[in-house]
Simulated scan of single mutants.
Amino acid sequence: MHAEAAETADAVARQFEANAPLVDALVQRLKAQPPAFIVTCARGSSDHAATYGKYLFETTLGLVTASASPSVGSVYAVRPHLKGALFVAISQSGKSPDLVRNAEIARAAGAMVVALVNVEDSPLAQIADTVIPLRAGPEKSVAATKSYLCSLAALLQLAARWSGDAKLLAAVDALPGALRDAWAMDWSPVVEGLKDARNLFVVGRGLGLGAAQEAALKFKETCGLHAEAFSSAEVKHGPMAIVGPGFPVLAFAQDDDTCASTMSVAEEFHQRGAPVWVALPGAQGQEVLPMPASPHPACTPLLTVQCFYKAVNALAVARGHNPDVPPHLNKVTETV
C-alpha cells in the first residue's frame, strides 16, 4: 500500500499526458451534444470518487449530477429514463456485474456512457462509448490508493477541459508536483493519537466530502478502526451528539467557501474536549496537519488524501494490522 500510494504523482502525470487527446475528443462531443444531466455509477472507493465528481461537475459546469443506485438496475430490473444523460461509470477492475449491467441499461436508454477504469479491456470498458483509462498501473494491495486518486485526477482533467477554466487548467498542470509535496508531509500526530482509538468521525464538505468518505473507509479497511464520514453540515443533524472527550475527529477543510463551516464544527468539537485534527492548506496551529500549497480548491481533496494514505498505512502497522491484506476482503469485489 505504501509503495503504491507513493507512485501516485507519477501515475497522474502519465495519465494527464496520455489521456489529453481522448479527453479533448470527448469534450468536443459533449459540447456538440450537451447532456441534460450527469449520472455517476460506482461502488466503494470509486463511489467516493463519484462524490467528488458530483461537486466538481456541479460547481464548474452547472450540470446536475446524481448518483445511480446500482441495485435499481441489477436487482430490481428497473430501466431509468436516461435519454440525453452523460452516464459516468467508475471502477478499478471494470468487472463488477452490477456496474456492467447498469452501464448496459444506460446505453440502451440513450445515455452516453463514459467509463473510468484501470483495466482497459474490462467488461465495463467494452460497453462504454468512451473509455478514460486511469493508467494507475498494477495495484496489488487490497486497499486502493493510486487508482482512487487517478480516478479523481481523470474527473478533474475532464472538468477542466470541458469548462475551459484557465485557472483549473493551470492547476491540472501543477497537480503532479503538488502530489509529490503532499507525500512528504508528516501526519504522525494522527498516527500517535489514533493508535488506541475505537471510533472516530471524519468530516468534510463540498469538494472535500468524498475525501472524508474515502478516509473513513480506509480506517475501517486497513486499521480495524470504526470511522464514519459526515458532511460538516450534516454532522450537526444528530451525529454530533456523541462527540466529546475521547471521541476523535479528523476534519478535512477546503480552501473555498465551505471552509468556515468545517472549521466552526471542528472548533466546537475541540471545545467539547474531543481530540481534533484539521487538514487545510495554509492553516497553522497545534492541531493543524501540514498540507502543501494547493494549486486550486478542486485539487485540495487529492492532496489531502495523498497525505492521509501515508498516515493511515503507518497507523495500520502501529495497530498490528497488515494494510496490504485486510481480513475478509478481496482486491476485486463483484456485486450483483
Rank of each mutant, 00 (worst) to 15 (best):
A3H: 11
A5S: 14
A5R: 00
V12Y: 07
A13Q: 11
N19V: 04
Q28C: 06
R29Y: 01
A32L: 06
Q33D: 09
I38W: 15
T40Q: 09
D47P: 13
F57R: 04
F57M: 15
L63Y: 11
V64N: 04
A68E: 14
Y76S: 11
R79S: 10
R79N: 11
F87M: 05
G94Q: 02
R107H: 09
A108D: 15
M112S: 10
V114N: 09
V114P: 12
V117G: 04
A128F: 08
V131T: 13
V131Y: 00
I132F: 01
P138L: 00
K140H: 08
V142R: 03
T145C: 09
K146T: 11
A154Y: 12
L155Q: 15
L156I: 06
A159C: 14
A159L: 07
D165N: 15
A166I: 08
L169A: 13
V172L: 04
G177H: 03
A178P: 11
A184L: 13
A184I: 06
D196K: 14
A197C: 06
R198C: 06
L200W: 06
G204P: 12
G206H: 10
G210Q: 07
A215L: 08
L217F: 01
L217M: 14
F219I: 02
K220L: 12
G224K: 12
E228H: 12
E228G: 08
A233E: 01
P248N: 03
F252W: 10
A253K: 01
D255Y: 04
D257T: 14
D257M: 12
A260Y: 01
E268G: 05
H270G: 05
R272I: 02
A274C: 03
W277C: 07
V278E: 03
P281Y: 05
G282R: 09
A283L: 05
Q284A: 08
L289A: 05
L289I: 05
P290Y: 00
P292Y: 00
S294T: 13
H296G: 12
H296A: 09
L303S: 10
T304H: 06
T304Y: 00
V305E: 08
V305L: 06
F308K: 07
Y309D: 15
K310N: 11
N313W: 11
A314Y: 02
H321S: 11
D324R: 13
P327M: 03
P327H: 13
E334P: 10
T335H: 08
V336H: 10
